[in-house]
Design a protein around this nucleic acid. Structure first.
Length: 848
RNA sequence: GGGGGAAUGGCGGAACGGUAGACGCGGCUGACUCAAAAUCAGCUACCUGACGGUGUAGGGGUUCGAGUCCCCUUUCCCCUACCA
């Protein structure tokens, strides 16, 4: 008997699979295809347990589908552009490219020992010129198709680092790295017209039945459709050119409760006024600054300034309202101007109270008085209108809104419009390590797209990060080029693309990753769409929404077939891997965190100092509650790591990593290996027919259970079934021949989860070829049915006994047996039951 | 503020409206051993000496029967955030 030594065998199987090319995806028209994809990783340099969990799930599905006879595509790549590479270059010197490719090599080296069924021949990184060149080609097609445009937009600008910051890099109004006060700066930037697709992206969510309801809802909220009225206030004493102020409202029924008109600090009128009124200009500058910090949003103090401008109420020209500039009004939603109705809007109420503006109730509860303070009932609720102007006196808000829009349209002072919260996707980044935007600025011809034959527009290698700012901008020659149109000297765009662009189409590129065009029609047609996409819930909104938009844009520009418009047929979002946090405090009272491997029984191994244990949280380097998968693989092997991350917790839920659990998993696998060897070494024997049948039944039940569990993404239940199966083998008195047969099936069931051990057992049992390519076992229906069933006997819903009867016994026979049961006779005490319920095959309930 | 989800033994978690706690971790007992580890066998929701009783966050309801369906309450987690 040989001991279980995964470190000796796992590598051999990986080599054997590799040499046989079992994971090479082939376009095979004779087979149904299955495309399983896990969200590709950012090459940070180390894989973590979350990766192991994510890729194991995908691998289980891929191997299972392969056994089911599908032609499987299961690729892997790297989301390789982005700021960490530049940050590393700034901190440690070196080049982002070196850093990135070095990290990729390291991570690939860590992933390969997991034995994933990945077709590595399709691997690419988004920073490969071969990839981003095709992305540039697609950008040009999208530009031509009117899906890309330029406009001014405000960005967070760090004046010290001379760079644009993402919102999450602005902490308390200061740059996360430099600590400098962040400025708002207007730049001309490139945008994708995702808003053109807002309605479609929203409506199509209904068709994504294999997506989590939660993700669909999050996207729906993000797109944020609203129906409302757009109308204009006529101004009385506004500056030249502003004789109207357009407003948008979702509550036109409250028009008679208007108390002021509010405009955004970025509204054209505000911009006109600040030129002549220094006092107002100061306020506007302050108002614009606010809102970027977390704290400002939290406290959200509402500030405003009366412009002195007055407007006429559309329903009564004699009624004049003041126009205020208010810090809580957003320029890029609706028209950047609103009318305030303090009686029925919490924000307006706060504002009106603060500045002493009138508060006029428009409606009240159907019964009783209007509450003091704002009254904001659900739109679906009926209310009594005090100052209605359209529809019934008592009606729901919804009906009143419809009536008000109809009224405004009939009178010609406004029209019903649909608005979306979703804004266009700004893709310009003033950064080096990203895909260059392939356009050229020519003095004569203006903005000119680069010619496709000049692609890729390559990033220059000779750049330095010792100074702040964008290296592309200060590069002596890179941006100097000639106009693709007239040949005159011209300047390249120095902005690069948002890295979300890279990840918005990589799934399509995997269908033919080294083609000279973004995609190849036959490959895209065969493989798309992705049958199963697996990743973290943190990408529920942006990445998935951008990908849905991009797939549509690729259909429009001819890079994907119509059927791939929704790129991900099914989506699964997995939970995090968590661990306790171990903390001590240093002499200065600052927290010090310790790795789990440094702690034993609540004290530091090195010093014996007690640690504070903080409840589990997502593994994070800063809290040091990380377990390096390489340690687990090194100590116990890949199969243990894979089996353990799939155990216990349902995949969508967080899983708590425990060292004890990993060790126990390893012991279990060793036990299975031992049992298999005992069977292999056992001599032929007579066995006993009842035991033989019992084991076969258990195994076939396990086929059924594991199949269902994998289909339903309940890997923890598949694991539980395998534990149960091992226990059955250990106890079974079946003949050696039957045990062999059963163990061979068990190897197949284990295959997706612990592929290396499964191969070992498969071979030991005399299986042909690889277990990974063997067809998935089918449960024999005859072995799934029980001949006898044990029915619990309930008396008034409480279990009081049980009775074992043949499965097919008719209900009236069962009744007789039940009525003869000792417990029932005792309970009845000579009387008759009120009711006798027999649920065939399940339960009996005697009602007394 | 808005939206979503969750709550079951010491712990992770099972359970078509039909025997609550599968399976695992941990723990306990025993076998093997000079001993330990490893391994194997068994026990392990709570109360009770036992008979029996009580139990799925709490309170109501529907049902022959509720962890599961409906209503209310509490707590926790996640997402989102001045969207007019």
């Amino acid at each position: 008997m040989t001991p279980y030594e995964p470190s000796k065998t796992e590598q051999n199987w990986q080599t054997a699979w590799n040499e046989a090319g079992v994971f090479t995806a082939r376009r095979d028209p004779s087979k149904p295809k299955y495309y399983v994809l896990e969200m590709f990783p950012y090459p940070s340099g180390r894989i973590h347990m979350g990766h192991v969990r994510n890729y194991t799930m995908g691998d289980v599905v891929a191997r299972y589908k392969m056994a089911q006879g599908f032609s499987v595509l299961h690729p892997m790549g790297w989301d390789a552009f982005g700021m960490p590479a530049e940050n590393a270059a700034m901190e440690r010197g070196g080049h982002p490219k070196t850093w990135t490719y070095g990290n990729i090599a390291d991570m690939r080296g860590q992933m390969k020992p997991l034995g994933l069924s990945i077709d590595w021949s399709r691997e690419f990184a988004t920073c490969d010129p071969e990839y981003y060149g095709q992305q540039q080609a697609m950008f040009l097609d999208m530009l031509k198709a009117g899906l890309v445009y330029r406009k001014n937009a405000v960005v967070n600008w760090d004046p010290v680092d001379m760079t644009v910051l993402a919102n999450e890099q602005v902490i308390d109004g200061k740059g996360w790295r430099s600590g400098a006060a962040v400025e708002r700066k207007e730049l001309t930037q490139w945008f994708f017209k995702i808003s053109d697709y807002a309605g479609e992206l929203l409506d199509a969510l209904d068709g994504l039945e294999h997506w989590p309801e939660k993700v669909r809802l999050m996207q729906a909220n993000w797109i944020g459709r609203s129906q409302g009225l757009q109308f204009a206030f006529e101004t009385v004493n506004a500056p030249e050119g502003f004789d109207k102020i357009e407003c948008y409202t979702t509550r036109p029924d409250t028009l008679m409760g208007a108390s002021f008109v509010g405009i955004s600090p970025d509204h054209p009128i505000a911009k006109a006024l600040e030129k002549t009124d220094p006092d107002l200009a100061a306020f506007i500058a302050e108002a614009r600054k606010g809102g970027t910090t977390e704290e400002a949003i939290e406290t959200g103090e509402k500030l405003g300034r009366d412009t002195g401008i007055r407007v006429r109420h559309p329903l009564n020209p004699d009624w004049e309202l003041p126009v205020w500039i208010a810090n809580f009004i957003l320029m890029d939603y609706g028209t950047g101007a609103i009318f305030g109705c303090p009686a029925h809007d919490a924000r307006d109420h706060e504002f009106a109270t603060k500045y002493g503006l009138t508060i006029t109730p428009v409606f009240a509860p159907v019964e009783g008085e209007a509450p003091t303070g704002e009254f904001v009932p659900l739109k679906s609720e009926k209310v009594r209108y005090l100052k209605g102007f359209a529809g019934e006196e008592v009606q729901t808000g919804e009906d009143a809104i419809k009536a008000a829009i109809a009224f405004a349209e009939a009178k010609g002072f406004g029209k019903g419009v649909t608005n979306y919260r979703l804004r266009d996707w700004g893709l310009s980044r003033q950064r080096y390590w990203g895909c260059p935007i392939p356009v050229v600025y020519c003095e004569k011809c203006g903005v000119v797209p680069e010619k496709k034959e000049n692609l890729p527009v390559l990033l220059p290698d000779d750049v330095s990060f010792d100074r702040p700012g964008n290296p592309l901008l200060r590069h002596p020659s890179w941006s100097q080029t000639t106009c693709p149109c007239c040949g005159a000297p011209a300047r390249r765009e120095t902005d690069t693309m948002d890295t979300f662009v890279d990840s918005s189409w990589y799934y399509a590129r995997f269908t033919n990753p080294h083609a000279k065009t973004p995609t190849v029609a036959e490959d895209a047609a065969y493989w798309m769409d992705v049958d199963q996409y697996i990743g973290g819930i943190e990408h529920a909104i942006l990445h998935l929404l951008y990908s849905r938009f991009f797939a549509r844009a690729m259909v429009k520009t001819g890079h994907l077939p119509e059927k791939a418009k929704e790129p991900f047929k099914a989506l699964f979002t997995q939970g995090m891997v968590t661990h306790e946090i171990y903390k001590t405090t240093d002499a200065n009272g600052r927290p010090v965190y310790h790795l789990p491997e440094e702690v034993e029984n609540g004290v530091l191994k090195a010093t014996g100092e007690a640690v504070e244990i903080i409840p589990s949280a997502k593994m994070s380097k800063s809290k040091k509650n990380v377990v390096d998968p390489m340690n687990i693989i090194g100590s116990f092997g890949a199969d243990t790591a894979r089996f353990f991350v799939m155990s216990d917790s349902p995949p969508e839920r967080d899983v708590e990593w425990t060292a004890a659990g990993a060790e126990a998993t390893s012991k279990f696998l060793a036990r299975v290996w031992r049992i298999a060897q005992e069977i292999a070494e056992g001599a032929p024997d007579a066995g006993n027919p009842a035991e033989d049948k019992a084991l076969l039944k258990t195994v076939h039940k396990a086929i059924d259970d594991v199949t269902r569990a994998i289909e339903g993404f309940a890997f923890n239940k598949a694991v539980a079934t395998l534990y149960g199966l091992a226990n059955a083998f250990a106890k079974s008195q079946a003949s050696n021949a039957v045990k062999r047969q059963a163990m061979q099936i068990a190897a197949q069931l284990m295959g997706p989860l612990v592929p290396h051990l499964a191969e070992d057992i498969w071979r030991l049992m005399g299986g042909e070829g690889f277990v990974v390519t063997a067809p998935w076992p089918k449960a024999d229906p005859a072995l799934l049915v029980e001949d006898e069933v044990t029915l619990p006997i309930q008396i008034n819903g409480k279990k009081r006994g049980e009775v074992t009867v043949p499965k097919t016994m008719p209900a009236n026979e069962v009744e007789k047996i039940v009525l003869a049961d000792e417990a029932v006779i005792k309970a009845l005490a000579g009387g008759q039951p009120k009711k006798l319920i027999v649920v065939p095959g399940r339960i009996v309930n005697v009602v007394i």
